[in-house]
Design a protein around this nucleic acid. Structure first.
Lengths: 216, 216
DNA sequence: CATCCCGTAATGTGATCACAAACCGCCGCT
DNA sequence: AGCGGCGGTTTGTGATCACATTACGGGATG
């Protein structure tokens, strides 16, 4: 995530700090499904009043990252199997398209960075670090998709990741895998070969693989 | 939009009223691109204080339905051609999938309703009613996609519609069409025949057709 | 006549407060 | 021991306020 240019350097607003903090926590699976959150608690934790905390929470609820009961209480959602299947299908649809759009722009420097990230994934996997695995895995995908130059699609994609965050925690915390995802190697190989059908299949497989066993 | 069961009948909160009111306005193209909005103005219009107005606006900004300047001023976005192309591609991806999932569940009653809506589209088109056209057209699509039983996908789809709302207003207000969309007939025919490839093609064509001339 | 500058009005932000609803644990009853 | 009602406490909601920042206008100056 290099920030090459940093023109304005404005201080982020309070609700943005809370929003971003919560968002990465959720996306990286640092919060278990069903975990309850309170506005005053969040406000105290981020050292702001209830107002910014409320805005951040409302926004995350709107994005499906948090669920709100009829009385207004918020918690991380516990997804049904049907919803997990839907979200996995959305990941497949959007990420295959993003990868396909990134392929013509994927030069050697990008592939090198992907390979570096992939070895980092092996490290966190051997350390049994579920959160680190999710974070590094998403970084692999985002690095590739950034080359697609499709910000609207990438935003949609990240929204889906966000919704799956707590569920992925439950998944990867449960199964104790010992190897890096094999489909990442297929993705890199397809990128090197300029093989678009192979890339689409590899991305689709990588996305579907993990979620299938959870929803199944 | 029939509400078959209405169990709790709770009074919607103030920020929800503002949110929904603004949302349908934007999605139906009742606000031109670049139109500015103020919190106090919205609060006065919906007879609430600034707090609920702010929450509604923030949520719409998060969904991409409104854009916020660095100083916090909000307005409907003026989309670049690249972004329009992206959103059209997203519509194509998601709506083709939704239609495909709806196909096995599409019985005669659904097809009848779609035909009824389609004749309504002819009416509003002959009346040169751009807003009515957008609303009825979206109702056609939503009626079909509801049968897919895929709420997460439908929500994503509506988010894309929302982002395209002001732009569609500019588009359909400009070109003065005199006929109902021909691809809707193809969609209905493919539904009747159970022709999945034909349905996918028809939906993709219908979605892409309108936006192409705007972004081109 | 154009341009720059400054003051006033308007706007977003965040804190605080009052209120109502919901949750939770305790106590008494059966 | 199980269960239902009840009160205190927690929690979300919305209004209001003070403040900083910005946008916008007129007027003076070159």
């Amino acid at each position: 995530m290099q920030a090459v240019s940093r023109p304005p350097e404005t201080t982020p607003s309070a609700h943005d700090r809370v929003y971003r903090g919560l968002r990465t926590r959720i996306m990286h699976g640092q919060i278990a499904p069903g975990q309850a959150l309170t506005l005053r608690g969040l406000g105290k934790e981020f050292e702001v009043s209830m107002t910014p905390a409320r805005e951040a929470v409302q926004r995350l609820v709107a994005e499906g990252a948090l669920s709100m009961s009829s009385s207004g209480r918020v918690s991380t959602p516990e997804l049904s199997n049907e919803r997990i299947e839907e979200l996995a299908a959305l990941r497949a649809l959007i990420e295959v398209e993003l990868a396909s759009r990134a392929l013509p722009r994927a030069h050697m420097a990008l592939i090198d960075r992907l390979q570096t990230i992939n070895t980092a994934i092996s490290d966190v996997v051997s350390n049994r670090d579920a959160v680190g695995y999710i974070r590094t895995n998403l970084e692999f995908h985002r690095t590739l998709y950034l080359r697609a130059q499709a910000p609207a699609m990438l935003a949609m994609c990240e929204t889906v990741w966000l919704q799956l965050g707590p569920t992925m925690r439950a998944l990867y915390g449960r199964l104790r895998r010992t190897e890096a995802p094999q489909y990442h190697r297929l993705i890199i190989a397809a990128l090197k070969a300029g093989d678009e059908p192979g890339l689409r299949l590899a991305v689709r497989s990588d996305v579907t693989q993990g979620l299938r066993m959870l929803a199944g």
